[in-house]
């Protein structure tokens, strides 16, 4: 009976990965893409648990623990990167606006 559950879980996790790929391709912001990666992580943990149940080996659960840790650190890294990029863009905008302002001053 568990074999049926493992099969359903595996198919579901693969479908979820496919849907996540659609979101990664469509975007529109990088936060959306990282969010889809987060969804991949959940699907991957589910797949690892399914693999452990299917083979009866606990090694795959260790894989799931590693995945959960790695996914967390990865998501935090991406979030900081997006944060910093947004900050930089804002600073560049401010600089451009300031430069434009001084040019108008000079024209007068």
């Amino acid at each position: 009976m568990i074999a049926a559950g493992v099969l359903i879980l595996t198919v579901a996790a693969l479908v979820v990965a496919a849907l996540g790929v659609i979101r990664i391709v469509k975007g529109p912001t990088s936060a959306d893409r990282v969010l889809a990666l987060d969804l991949f992580l959940t699907a991957a943990v589910a797949l690892a648990v399914a693999a452990a149940l299917g083979t009866g080996r606990t090694v795959f659960l260790d894989v799931a623990i590693g995945l959960a840790l790695l996914g967390f650190v990865g998501t935090i890294g991406w979030a900081r990167l997006i944060d910093r990029a947004a900050l930089k863009r804002q600073q560049a905008d401010d600089d451009a606006r300031a430069r434009q302002g001084s040019r108008q001053e000079a024209r007068r």
Binding site: G5, I8, L9, A12, V16, L19, L39, A43
Partner: peptide, 22 residues
């Protein structure tokens, strides 16, 4: 049977989460 129902429910909510992300 309990394990099977939990696994199926988990698979369903995983699918719905992906649907929500889309």
């Amino acid at each position: 049977a309990v394990a099977l129902s939990f696994l199926v429910l988990g698979a369903a909510s995983l699918l719905i989460a992906a649907w929500g992300v889309l």
